[in-house]
Write a protein that binds this DNA or RNA. Sequence first.
DNA 1: TAGATTGTTAATCGATTAACAATC
DNA 2: TAGATTGTTAATCGATTAACAATC
Lengths: 207, 207
Amino acid sequence: MKEDISLSVIKRLPRYYRFLEMLKVNGIARISSKELAERMGLTASQIRHDFNCFGGFGQQGYGYNVEVLYKEIGDILGLNDGDTMIIVGAGNLGRALASHDTFEKRGFKLVGLFDSDEKIIGTEINGIKVQGADNLEKFVRSNRVDIAILTVPKAAVQPTAELLAAAGVKGLMNFAYTELDLPEDIAVSNVHLSDPLMYLSYRIKNK
Amino acid sequence: MKEDISLSVIKRLPRYYRFLEMLKVNGIARISSKELAERMGLTASQIRHDFNCFGGFGQQGYGYNVEVLYKEIGDILGLNDGDTMIIVGAGNLGRALASHDTFEKRGFKLVGLFDSDEKIIGTEINGIKVQGADNLEKFVRSNRVDIAILTVPKAAVQPTAELLAAAGVKGLMNFAYTELDLPEDIAVSNVHLSDPLMYLSYRIKNK
DNA sequence: TAGATTGTTAATCGATTAACAATC
DNA sequence: TAGATTGTTAATCGATTAACAATC
């Protein structure tokens, strides 16, 4: 595998993965870069270029085997590593995400739910009991949690993130409208749900 | 305003907007491109370049007035147009989004909630009653709904989107793992919640 | 073998950065 | 006026696309 895969390529991988899954479900065994390009609205050239960042998965004159390619991209993304995940903040959004079954389908295993509200602690969502925030650090350490989804109030985000980072979490998915300041070996994805809405607003105004 | 603002520039606008809001809240009245760049992790050059796509909001020797710039970017994004919004699909995620108060803060007014489940219809979330899916088309037409958030099951997405488009909705925020095929004057934002998780997984694997 | 389609290099295009004159 | 910082053009960098030889 080449060093220094560009961010643009990496960001396209999940979308490739979804399309290949769809093809697989529809029983399509092989596909050429040309046809995949048409379906995805990309160029065949870009697709071949992208895949070749990770090595040649295709075969001249034939195209790509859907099953193989799907598996390969999953491996590249690390979806077969059995990453464990917790959700910190069991409010409306946290609870909705806990019931979101796509995460598990993609190989992320939800192992814990945390909140600091006494009324929520002890309730069960999707078979998992909500624990108090005071258990958080110990739980993360002893269970070697890989990823934490942060759905806590804005003010709690930075301290919670620091605690999680110190306890050994490797990646954070942050839903609050703050950008985190953390050691750079912690991977962070900020999900700002208003952003796509603002983008729509712009498009509506300027069409 | 220039024609053809590039997508890269537009996609940065919501983030500028959030940072300016933060500065405003913190009582900062003016800022130079240099300082904003440091805070945001961009280059000063890019910031000035971006803002100048829409006209000069700054003043030589002084910088940018935070309040003015904030207002301007809000206007560019169309956040002051009073866009109305409905949520179609009042499951876990739909209900969580209905209670998400940032949307309203950004100028999006939630006016309706819809579902097809008899058990959910009639319940109230955030002061809004869930209506049956059979009211959807009529409601959209008579209330001139601008934006619809789609949190319906995968199989229902495409037909629902078509119905909404025909009824005059201008923008769709789609949370299902399908990409929509619609007339191109309808703006669409696909929100794939697993994508940031897959990205984290990649980063964790390849750090 | 002939046809198809990849892998890969080179050409193009667009986005970011640097530089500096304009000007507050 | 002097200093600071924008607005804007030109230079650079990176990403996408085109082209074609390699090969299944």
